[in-house]
Design a protein around this nucleic acid. Sequence first.
DNA 1: ATGGCTGATTATATCAGA
Length: 268
Amino acid sequence: MLRIATWNINSVRLRMPLVLRYLHEHQPDVLCLQETKCRDAEFPASDLRSAGYEHLAIHGQKGYHGVAIASRHPLSSISRRDFCAKGDARHIAATVEFAGREVAIHNFYVPAGGDVPDPQVNPKFAHKLGFLEEMSNWMSGPDWQNSSAILVGDLNIAPLEADVWSHKALMNVVSHTAVEIDRLQNVLAAGAWVDALRQQIPPHEKLYTWWSYRSPNWLAADKGRRLDHIWLSGDLAANVDALEILKDARGWERPSDHVPVLISLKSR
DNA sequence: ATGGCTGATTATATCAGA
């Protein structure tokens, strides 16, 4: 059994109590974090080690972005890729052993893309599209052939109509526009990935992992989006045991605006 | 009514998130 969780934590230092609560209550083997918002030297490594997550792969920077993998089992082949050559900490990968295989875990924080969904006038949106294009180009290449892999993270795109509270209201809002959904589908196809959540949950069923801070009654309004994803290489698709989107965590004290998403894989 | 909030920063306003 291997339990892997992904969570955009929106400042890991501020929310370490929530991280420790989640680890205690849900017992993932591996936790992938995004938006850690601190340099590597400031990462709360000792707290995670004390909680039993002794193996850490971190890629941070000051103030923004930042990704990390915390694991109860050894991590090997740790790597970080600098997408778009901007020096941003938006990707880290590490390998774990599962069912006699070496499984690469790739943890991504895809750029949000700013407000205006036009790459001609909005450089942030151009960056987002470029980032996605670099992902699909990379995954078409030799590194990815015949490898067991899991891709997780905040991809900042809600691809399906049921991944947003209103397809009509959001089709011109960054995170749900046709052009970025198209780029995301290219990434999915390039890596021959399986969207694990939608493999388990019917595609017409509403499914969210993020609720804006700006909605005071986020629970009642329920205007969410599915921005956080878990994708599997084809050989792992039949190992899925369970999925868990911890919506409760959005209601914890001083929450992240994203909630943890977990996949449990069984050895066949 | 998709920005009404939230977090980080050599801060006391600005940028970023999405």
